[in-house]
Design a binder for these strands. Sequence first.
DNA 1: GTCAGTGCTGTGCACACGCCCAGCACGCAC
DNA 2: GTGCGTGCTGGGCGTGTGCACAGCACTGAC
Lengths: 216, 216
Amino acid sequence: MASVPSSRRIGSPDSETRTQLLDAAERLMREEGYAAVTSRRIASKAGRKHQLVHYYFRTMDDLFIELFRRRAEENIGRFERAIAQDGSLGNLWRLNADPRGAAFTLEFVALANHRKALRAEIARYAEHFRSSQVEAVRRALVDSGVDEDELPAIVALLMMTGLAQVLALEDTLGVTAGHDTTVEFVGRAIAQLEARSADRRESGTPSTRDDAPREG
Amino acid sequence: MASVPSSRRIGSPDSETRTQLLDAAERLMREEGYAAVTSRRIASKAGRKHQLVHYYFRTMDDLFIELFRRRAEENIGRFERAIAQDGSLGNLWRLNADPRGAAFTLEFVALANHRKALRAEIARYAEHFRSSQVEAVRRALVDSGVDEDELPAIVALLMMTGLAQVLALEDTLGVTAGHDTTVEFVGRAIAQLEARSADRRESGTPSTRDDAPREG
DNA sequence: GTCAGTGCTGTGCACACGCCCAGCACGCAC
DNA sequence: GTGCGTGCTGGGCGTGTGCACAGCACTGAC
């Protein structure tokens, strides 16, 4: 017996139709914002009847949570796989700079503003994601010989994330002045840091930078 | 005769009631997200009938545009006044770091996703604001003796804006790990830059730093 | 052959929304 | 005192929404 008195029948979580509905919802959200994500419009986009949405999801909150979770898990997985292959700062920046991720975040945070059930879920994910990312950045920085005092990992991360977010946000508005310059600048800055790392690996002794050994 | 055949009577733009409605709408938007901003809820929040909203605003789009414009103009004015008084990097950062501004931007960008009339308005404002800000940052950087190649003004601005935005965004979620560290770090970095500026002003000759104008 | 489980749908309810219209009350101009 | 402009409202229309419920068709277990 279920602990809940509500007896409404809910479709199987493994159903392919269910997945199609979620896909449609995701597309809607990306293309038209969260306000466009309604049972009717999801169904019509998936070529189904709107009641099906309620058959597979008890409430719209449930649907949004599932939608978010699915994407969040995929995101985390993608990041972890990519980092495992190449944990360099450059790669971390490239991953963060993907505008899809930023746009996704933006929309969900706006949504969280009036769907409390989502808020908790998003916060949990954000914290998990954050700490995993910070760890990766920390390793990359250590590898580049950057001292934690010189540039704390969390600061580097927030800068990358923030930059990625403004860029994505402005892109959606069609405002792109200075973006190229910025991306190039960050690329160069990271390349410089990574060059340090190469130096250290080739020669046992620190290279040009031994004028400041005490900060490290 | 007006050029528009529609003959509906619209209330005076100077009306105090109208202002109250806008205030209520703004509060709603901040507290519950843009989806909560409906004629009925605005009116109820302002203690009026919902038809009044339609009396003062031909369409909800009109209301949103007005809402945005009001805030945008106030924002620009506040910034320009503050910068005129103190155009230092530190002050620019402080102005940008105000979470209210960032949250406001965030919500409206999300809104622009499905209200095309707003999109153009927001983009126009963003461009205006951006160029005015870039100019201020450029002046502050020149004043600190930072070369444009070392740190382009647009990059500095986007970094500040981006950082302010992530911080604000995470705050609304209750995720604040590392925020203090980051704010402190930025503060220190800026203080260092400004110290350069003080050096240059006190002694006519450049101080200790002219040996390494190209490094970061 | 029966029967339970499963995917799906027709019908419908209560509610909120944007917007319109006709008209009331009031104050000022003439 | 009449007329007019202005602030405001009762009533209502058409649409979209989340969600419930009863019931259909099909399939595999027994």
